[in-house]
Structures are given as C-alpha cells and as structure tokens.
Design a protein around this nucleic acid. Sequence first.
RNA 1: GCCGACGUAGCUCAGUUGGUAGAGCACGGGUAUCGUAAACCUGGGGUCGGAGGUUCGAUUCCUCUCGUCGGCACCA
Length: 651
Amino acid sequence: MAAIQLTFPDGNVKEYDAGVKPIDVANGISKSLAKKSVSAKLDGHYVGMNDEIPASGQFELITTDDAESLDILRHSASHLMAQALKRIPKFANMHFGVGPYIENGFYYDTDNGAGNQVSVDDFPEIEAMMHKIVKENLPILSHEISREEALKTFANDPYKVELINDLPEGEKITVAVQGDHVELDKGGLVPSTGWIKHFKLISVAGAYWRGDSDNHMMQRIYGTAFWKAADLEADLQRRAEAKERDHRNIGRDLDLFFTSQEVGSGLPVWLPNGATIRRQVERYIVDKELNNDYLHVYTPVLSNLNLYKTSGHWDHYREDMFPPMDMGDGEYLELRPMNCPSHIMVYKHKPRSYRDLPMRVAELGMMHRYEKSGALTGLSRVREMTLNDGHTFVEPEKLEDEFKSILKMMMEVYEDFNITDYRFRLSYRDPKNTEKYFDDDEMWEKSQAQLKRAMDDLGVDYFEAEGEAAFYGPKLDVQTKTALGGEETLSTIQLDFLLPERFNLTYVGEDGKDNHRPVMLHRGIVGTMERFTAYLIEMYKGAFPTWLAPLQVEIIPVNLGAHGDYARKIQKQLQDAGLRAQVETKDAKMGYLIREAQTKKVPYTLVLGDEEMGQDNVTVRRYGQKATETISMVDFMKEIQADVARYSRVD
RNA sequence: GCCGACGUAGCUCAGUUGGUAGAGCACGGGUAUCGUAAACCUGGGGUCGGAGGUUCGAUUCCUCUCGUCGGCACCA
C-alpha cells in the first residue's frame, strides 16, 4: 500500500494509505476538527470529501475557521436550493444556469418558462423543502465524468449543455451528486447536505443568461447562508438596517430632495436642506481647486452637436444622449452629456505655450444623460447632474507628475470628508473587445503602463480591471460602496491621448515650434454633486458634521414670549459668525421640540430660559448625547467655530 | 432597455365574494405656557398613478401606459 502524506490545518503531517477518503481523514483526526472540516483540496484543487485520495499529492483540509469555508457553504446552499426546486412539482421541469457563491451569499439562475416564474411567495415552500433535504443529510459525492456522459446527464438542461459544449477539449468535467440531484461542478462543497443549516432566500430578480443583454432573461434567486444561526440573524438585521441608511429614505425624512413624476424621472429637486449640503461641498471643492491652480470657468450646458461628433461621444454614446434639437437652419444643438469638449474649447481659445502648461480648467459642469429608465436611482443615477469636472492639459513628459498631484489632492479631499472605505481600480480596455475603444494598440499599452507605474511609484494599493476604461483611454477609478452594498465610482482620473488629436490641440514648445501635442487628464474629485451627496448621506446616516449640516443650531426658547428676544439675539450672533441657526417658534412642549431637533439630527440644540438669559449663557445639547451643559455664549461660539473649522479648512 | 414586484392623503400603511375610502404622523384652528425624545380637543385634505375596456356600478377584474423598488444590462 502506498502511503500519502497529509498536512492538517494545525500543521501536523500524518501518513495515510492511498484510497482513504477526506471525510474519514477528518473524522480520524479529532472530533473537533472533524466538525470543522468542510472541504478538501489536493494540489490546490477541490476534491470531494467522500472521494478516495490518490497516492500522491499535497492534501489540505479546509475548516470552518477558514474564510473560504463560507464560500463553500454558500456554493453548497445554491445546489441545495436547486435540488429543492426540482422536488417541487411546479418547478420540476425548471432549467438551471449557473449557481455560484457571491460576496454576501449565493444565487442560482433559473428558467421555469414564461408565465411560471418563481416569486418570493414561493420562498417558504422552497425553504421548507431545503430543510427537508438537510435533514436527509445526503452525502455530496464528487467525481469526474466523460463529456458524453455529461451531455447525457444534462440532456434536459439546455443551459448546462451549452456550458459543457463550451468547455475546451480535454478539460476535466466533474459533477457533484447529492441523492437524486446532479450538478455540473468544479468542487468546493460541504461533505453532505446536513452541513447546510442556516440559510435564507432573499430575493428574485431578472438576469441575462451569461450576462449578455442579447440573451434570454432568467430568474436569479438570491439567498445567503451561514454556519451559525446568530450570524444569519445578524446578516438579515444588517440588510434591514441598510435600508434605513439608504439616501432615498433619509433624503425624504430630512427634506433634502425629492423626485416627482411631474418634474420627470431622474430629475431630482434639491430642497433647501439638501441644497445647503451641496452648496457647502461646492464651495469647499472650488476653493480647494483654486488653491491648486485650477482655472474655474462657466461653459454652456447646450452646445453645437458637432462638438460631440468631433469628440466621438456622439458615435459612442448616442443612445444615452438627449436627442439633438433641430434649429431648422442646419444647426443642431445638444444638451451636453459631458464637459470635456467645452473645456477643450477654453484651451483652444488662444495659442498656448509650454509655459502655460499644465493648464487646469475646472467647472461645476451641469450635464444631461438619457440614462436608461431601469438605471435611475435616487440621487446616485440621474439624468441631470453636475460634475466637479476638471481637465488638465499637460506636456506628455509631465503626465505622471500631474497624475500624482491630482491623486494627492483627491486623497486630501477624502481625508477632509472622512472617507476611508474605498479602493482604487485601474481600468483598462477589454483586450477581447477592442472595437469599443479608440484603435491604437501602442497608445493603450503605453498609457496603461504609465498609469500602473505612477500608482506603483506612489505605493498605493489598487486592483486592475479590464473592460472598464473610457473609449479614449485608461483611468483610475475610486470605488466606494453604497448603503445597500453596491459598488460605484466616486472619483476618477482618466488619461486621454485621443481628444487632443481629434480637436487638434497644440502648444508652442521650448523649441519654438507650435506643433506639440498636449495630453489631457480628465478628473472628477468629488464626482457629481448628486452621487457625492448621496454618498455623504449614507456615510453619515444623515447626521452630518457641523460644517455640512443644513441646520447647525436649533434654538428653543423655554417660553416664546418671555425668552424669544433673547433667542433671536443668540441667533443673530451665530448668523453673524456665518452659522446656520434657527429659533423654534412652534408653540409646543419642550420635549416635543427636543425630539424633533434630534430626529432631524441637528448638531447643536440650545435651550434658553430664565436660567440662561441673565448670564448670557446657553444650555447646549449636542446631537446624539442626552447630557446637557450650560455654558457662556462666548464658550459655545468658540466650540462651534472650532467644530466647523476643523472640517472646512482648505489648504 | 429587460425580468419580476409594487403604486390608496404630504409620509407610513389598513381596506376580499365589485356598491365611489380609513388610521397614525404631518398640516390648520383652539385650550394649556410647559426646562430636554411625542400635551389635549378639533378641522381640512384623496378623480385609490394615468388612459381605455368589462359591468347597472370598478380602488377592487382585464388591457395598455407612466412611475417606483429589487436585480440584470448600460455607465463618457
């Protein structure tokens, strides 16, 4: 008998006879480890827990202590769900696509034919069937089969057949068998269905087969699973709380903005409170840019359509642009979908010299995009938006320096807003789909390498993504998470060698020749005011830092008649100092007014009565605290000014 | 745009064999003038998203349409 060396999670190495099964190995070690072992890998590839181990190779057990085990559990849960569905008569003939684990759970793409879709109302029945199969504790067996066998096994599942046919010739095909259910599967599963105890189906939604909108749409059933009941409970709790954090809900509760059918879809109206937050952000970022040698301009939201034909945007994004306005004399005007051509016109207005470069043009530029109806979401995806836009025109050899200086400014801004949860994405073109992009392989190779080099020089962490570039060049995107877990781009820096060509931009070099071509950098630091505000709302859960808060100080006179004048005097002092303060004139009990100030998340609430009036004092209650403190107005003024100054510095 | 669900007062939501609607909060009026998370009384407010159809009669059933939500696709 050949002996095989097995390395265990605790580092121990033991010898076993070949032919032993991982599940026996796990059981043989110790009771505690056996309970924790969920899957096994041989030479880095998953093997079934119930399969025999061959005579050679490096073997490792994966236990519930490993983060990977949660993926294995969820992957197994998706199979469990598929098996349950097949056992329910009305889903007996359901076809299945793919059923992977994802970040917060798993899904399975299903197709039960038109008119027979799965609905959330079916979830209890499906879950009950899943629990039944868990009780049966069916062993999950994994083994290799031939292509012919595979095609025979899945003959009734056209999606699976397509997947099998797409596997390269010679590729190993493995299946996972649990009782009467067979899955096309690469492995990474729990030993038996009894391991999957704590799960919940979450939602059902449409999804194109293989992610292609030309393909048939399937029903994607989402679920999640955990090892412990408490973890599942906590996760469901988190999902519920995320809704409270959703900027659309807070926006309504705090009167920040609204959208209405009368105004139009994707066209939010900013109410005074939301407008204040936005104004603060706008003042901040414009000041910041002016201090970084940006030239702020105003350019029209409406321009000649030819501008976008020249830039190439018309060709690439016509579907998502508002239709041109035919002015009747051969001229077509277009609501601009982006600001670059406008800023290019600023550059082109006069001959430029290398001494003028880098030239940084910036604007809070309003633009319009006809986003598809299904994409519209609150403030984060809209049809009219104002971008904190900027374009730098730079000598090619200074490109990396300029890139780094923009990134530096971006990180300073993030610090001022306390934004810490983000990651950098280097967005390259999709090498398999190059017709979407400007056709110049050398340019792409070079600029993508430049981008990467600049990031490496700075020693900043990033990840790379193919197919995320703009048509004119690669970019650095800053990816953040929304309350509901979606990822979106907040800021971006884009390299552009194309538009300077298209618009024939030049500058006079040191050599006196006027045929030098600048490079362009497109950048948005806080992105669009809409999306950035949405992000801030969710990040702060509506409890804004004082410098951003719509109302900073709520003043409550104990008795409006007796203390109203004093309240208005205090308000005046605060307003003269540039602060946003309001005297509450509603004739209600104090408890009511305090409650209102707290639910509106006002940073400071002042209560003024006999005890304060004589001594020029205020009694202050800070947001989120129950405690109150009576201090002099002078001290309060110092406190709030320090509070505001801490965030609103521009350097 | 696609698949599914939903659309009743400003907001959150009730409203079943089809007989033109109700609560709480909010808002207006009144009483009380109150020291840190909801005083009490009272009033107004709805073409039940819109259009068409079936019916003696539609918030309810059907069709279309607009919008919202969950995803997918898209995102310069």
